[in-house]
Design a protein around this nucleic acid. Structure first.
Lengths: 330, 330
DNA sequence: GTGAAAGCGCTAACAC
DNA sequence: GTGTTAGCGCTTTCAC
């Protein structure tokens, strides 16, 4: 096993100098630096991170604490985060938890005591629990939040969900829809609020009335989307399009449409949000919004590793046009 | 920060004794052991794993190397594995990779050199690449394989996929189906072969002919399921039921049925495999097989942490009866 | 700009 | 059974 000593010997310098070079600290002549780097390369030297950590340095571990019922969301985040970790010499530790757990903070404390991650990545709903986030922050260590909420410091990684909502509303309005129903998302989810905001603003800007009857509450699950839509379609003058705050509810919308004998998209256009794998599989395939989840996971890692280089702006969303929308009848 | 020294002092013993107790080594009197445990509890002592590792002990890290296009599969594995890790004081490091990557072994080598996981968890397709598995094994460290293939040592965690296939075939035969089509899975996937085996055995045991024309090749993706089914349904005497080797292809089967103007399940019964979230969402909901993925993830961790206590048998599958099957017409 | 020495918190080897 | 001592491979002082 090759250690820092071997590299130092080969480069003809002290181990401290090697350490300086490898950690990109200043005060090393370019020439010496080059020599060290070459020696390390030749010996295929990989620092022992347990030793780094023990000596008071970094652990090169980042922990992702999450509680999310949506596997594809988490998976994409992990892929992006883990890839960036690898590029930076870090590793991603996953900690699935129950957000209702009373001792979440104890878990974080134990995490710091045992493996001492250099930072903690939080995604919704954990990242939107300000009290919890504040407590974690006080435990020390860096933090990165994947969340539509915005704090002062830009540790929040997100897309412009309000803007995405407006963009997709523009599509619907462009097709000629004037009566557009909306199924709201989970009340605790900040992004859901922004999506609703976008819906409202779009209507107003288009000079349309915001009809409360066209808005139904949902909770991000299929069943609530189904039930919300039943009430919407039972309206005397029913909507020609329904915008669901996520894909799973959009499937519920589709099912409700079938119950009412409506063809999609001819009789009813449907919009989702998230571009889950399912949205491609159902028929008709769902027009929806894609967030760059892998990039968001990567940005989270970046925020922890080098806060200055982290993105200080929204990451771009994408509107995915598929087969669930058409101009209204007549 | 409380260290092993603090515990030793409080318990009135040497740090070595504390170490012994905490690592469950023998040669400690029950009384002393109790005293140490109590001191540790009182001080809320958590061992620093960087130090454990550096001193030649365990890292308490387990790495999951995976490449899988199915987020819900991986997610479930992670939840089960991470939970068991937590119970055992371990942590799960995730390493998503591209199984085509030429330097996979280099990645594993780097993993050992930097964070030195106590074991590596492999899932398909990586776990079914015997050459790769052998190379990893030679790098040292323990290994756990989630895979339908069987080696001599029982490091392979799996359900009885052949048995599951036979169980679901029994359901179909019980409903009265005699012409049952089969869409095979990816040729490289060992589980897919077992599922096919089960199909064949079931037919033979029921005294039915194995008709090659009723078997079509698929590759686990929706499109291949769709195309395979087109050929099956174009047969002069078409099947009354189709068993797809996974859920995604089963969705393809459903789409093909619609193309042919067939009602499911009245005109065609459909069976899937995996119980992905989607199987509940499509209409009709899919009858399928569920593997205990969380338990399999947990078993993988167990295999690494205490090989003797690891399960040496199949984990139980479950047949999920939903709405995609009915007796054949006439 | 570079190096020598100390020590992080634990486990292993070996004494008692 | 239990304790003593010597590191593990780094980073951090603090000299020079």
């Amino acid at each position: 096993m090759t250690t820092i000593k071997d590299v130092a010997e080969r480069a003809g310098v002290s181990i401290k100098t090697v350490s300086r070079v490898l950690n990109e600290e200043p005060h090393v002549r370019a020439q010496v630096k080059e020599r060290v780097l070459e020696a390390a390369r030749e010996l295929d030297y990989k620092p022992n991170r347990a030793a780094s950590r023990l000596a008071g340095g970094r652990s090169f571990l980042i922990a992702h604490l999450y509680d999310n019922p949506n596997p594809s969301y988490i998976s994409a985040l992990h892929i992006g985060a883990a890839r960036r970790c690898r590029e930076l010499g870090y590793h991603l530790v996953v900690e699935p938890v129950n957000s209702q757990d009373k001792d979440l903070l104890g878990l974080v404390r134990r995490l710091f005591a045992t493996i001492a991650p250099d930072g903690i990545l939080l995604s919704p709903p954990l990242s939107e629990n300000t009290e919890f986030v504040e407590s974690v922050r006080q435990l020390g260590g860096r933090i990165a939040l994947i969340s539509a909420t915005h704090g002062d410091e830009w540790t929040h990684i997100s897309t412009d969900e309000r803007g995405a909502s407006k963009a997709i509303m523009a599509h619907l309005l462009g097709l000629g829809h004037r009566r557009i129903g909306f199924v709201r998302g989970h009340p605790q989810h900040f992004g859901a609020t922004l999506r609703y905001d976008g819906y409202c603003q779009s209507l107003v800007e288009a000079g349309l009335e915001l009809e409360p009857a066209l808005v139904a509450q949902g909770y991000f699950d299929l069943q609530s989307g189904l039930e919300a839509t039943r009430s919407l379609l039972a309206l005397p003058e029913r909507p020609t399009a329904i915008f669901a705050s996520n894909d799973e509810m959009a499937v519920g919308v589709l099912m409700a449409a079938r119950e009412f004998g409506l063809n999609v998209p001819e009789d009813l256009s449907i919009i989702g949000f998230d571009d889950t794998p399912m949205s491609r599989l159902i028929s008709p395939a769902l027009t929806t919004v894609r967030q760059p989840l892998e990039a968001m996971g990567a940005a989270g890692v970046e925020t922890i590793v080098s806060p200055d280089k982290a993105p200080r702006d929204y990451l771009d969303f994408e509107i995915i046009l598929r087969d669930s929308c058409a101009p209204p009848r007549g």
